[in-house]
Nucleic acid binder design. Structure first.
Ligand SMILES: [Mn+2]
Ligand SMILES: [Mn+2]
Ligand SMILES: [Zn+2]
Ligand SMILES: [Zn+2]
Lengths: 124, 124
DNA sequence: ATATTATTGCGATTATATCGCATTAATAAA
DNA sequence: TTTATTAATGCGATATAATCGCAATAATAT
């Protein structure tokens, strides 16, 4: 299955990389306007996640947010960090601190998804 | 605004209390059958959260789960614990360990929502 | 017993995300 | 360069979770 480089892909990847925050589909659509179809954006984002170019986080608002993998090198993907969502301005950011996952015996973790919602410095 | 005790309310509260896991709307509806309306279940759960009888957690699957507040006494509600969702059997449980929320200066936290998904001991 | 109104049931609606399928276009092959 | 292959796209339909409007019901105060 040969991957192809398309206009949509590069536009979306650029948007992800340019943003210092995690972005929702809505945000990307707004950024790109009608130049890229809604379904295409979803599909490209899903592919990015599969390919390990981006990671997906499910917000405590139930929506999906995406962020480019910056520190992940090779096939090592670990995203054990929290995210902050501002209840006022809506922005979502990756927090620096890594979270140590402590699980009772027998549990096999596959993914971590953590959110703190509240008010960011600009909105507090 | 006087709160009233209704059949739906007690049925749903009982379901919450009897369950050792966090439950979704779907689960409650299945438990209660058609005796309680879908919208009513949602509304009762929302009221429980407002009243501090239950707490809501948004799963990394984007769905809402609810658990009765057991250790919360009075108006002190702190739910800084992680949840585990099994990718195979779908169950969601509250994990014992409390998470310490470290935020950069200026951030005002309001709510914590954390999930680890993977495989539970029974499914691993 | 009666009045008040919180709560319910039901259908319609919103919101987020995915799917099916014909068409387009990126890349490989000739 | 031209042609063939098929990954990726556009568009409308569909799926799923949750909320809303409003008339009817029923819990509680009087
Ligand atoms: Mn990564
Ligand atoms: Mn509580
Ligand atoms: Zn803000
Ligand atoms: Zn399981």
């Amino acid at each position: 299955m040969h991957v192809r480089n398309t206009k949509s892909k590069s536009l979306i990847l650029e948007t992800l990389k340019n943003s210092k925050q995690a972005v929702s589909h809505e945000k990307i659509q707004a950024e790109l306007g009608e130049s890229v179809d809604r379904a295409t954006i979803y599909r490209v984002l899903n592919r990015f996640c599969e390919e390990g170019i981006a990671h997906r986080i499910t917000g405590d608002d139930g929506k999906q947010y995406f962020a480019a993998c910056l520190k992940c090198q090779g096939k090592e993907h670990r995203h054990n960090h929290l995210h902050f969502r501002c209840l006022n301005c809506g922005k979502v950011e990756c927090l620096p601190n890594e979270i140590e996952l402590k699980l009772p015996a027998g549990y096999r973790p596959a993914n971590f998804n953590g959110f703190i919602s509240g008010h960011c410095p600009a909105c507090a």
